[in-house]
Design a binder for these strands. Structure first.
Lengths: 107, 107
DNA sequence: GCTTACGGTAAGCAATAACTTACCTTCTGT
DNA sequence: ACAGAAGGTAAGTTATTGCTTACCGTAAGC
């Protein structure tokens, strides 16, 4: 059920930017915030959400707190998506091939 | 850039339930709504969002409108996630192995 | 030991969005 | 042709949430 919090976390544009920043490598809060148009506390709050979703991990380094991507949440999300994958492909193909009648949209 | 609308669409619990219902096979709006605790118009609105995100397609069948999963949006989402996959695994492994100092959380 | 830097938390505000009811259009069957 | 069913759209309400500023704890360096 943890895929839910993961996907909900990544729905926010700012959190996606944070997450994508971490894809380049681990970084402390201040550095992450410097590259974004929001305040440092906002970034802290976002990182908390991402951490609780299992998408990032943090590590104390003196007074800094270095964040990096946690594959755990990513794996959950991927697993959930894959549930749809084969199923969607087969049923989609069947639909398209069998029922070509009726307008698809008004105009 | 379409992965953004896809992930934002699936962030909503009700839309996820709709999407998961469609995993079982195509269904008209009324049938989908009957299995959910929200009104039919709400389902219509959700389906519109999912359609614009490329996650579902609809097909007119007389007065019904049958919805089914569209693999397109799913593919975009998967591709975006995969960008993190290898990168995250390697950098995560490197982090864990190299820096075992400092408490990870306060208590 | 004191100052400074870094970052998490609290409180408050404003914008978004998920729902509702009401309405209108369109297709079907008699 | 008309009655009814199915569903998309409009307008309005309410809850959520992402942001801000202010504050506090803690580790590092002189």
């Amino acid at each position: 059920m943890a895929y839910a919090t993961a996907i909900e976390s990544l729905a926010d544009p700012t959190r996606r930017r944070i997450f994508e920043r971490l894809r380049l490598g681990p970084a402390p809060v201040g550095v992450i915030a410097r590259g974004l148009p929001v305040s440092r506390p906002a970034v802290s709050q976002h990182l908390k959400v991402l951490r609780e979703a299992g998408l990032v991990v943090d590590q104390a380094r003196g007074t800094r707190r270095v964040y990096s991507i946690d594959p755990a949440g990513l794996a959950e999300l991927r697993a959930w998506l894959d549930q749809f994958w084969t199923e969607a492909l087969t049923s989609f193909k069947a639909e398209v091939e069998s029922a070509p009648r009726g307008p698809r949209r008004k105009a």
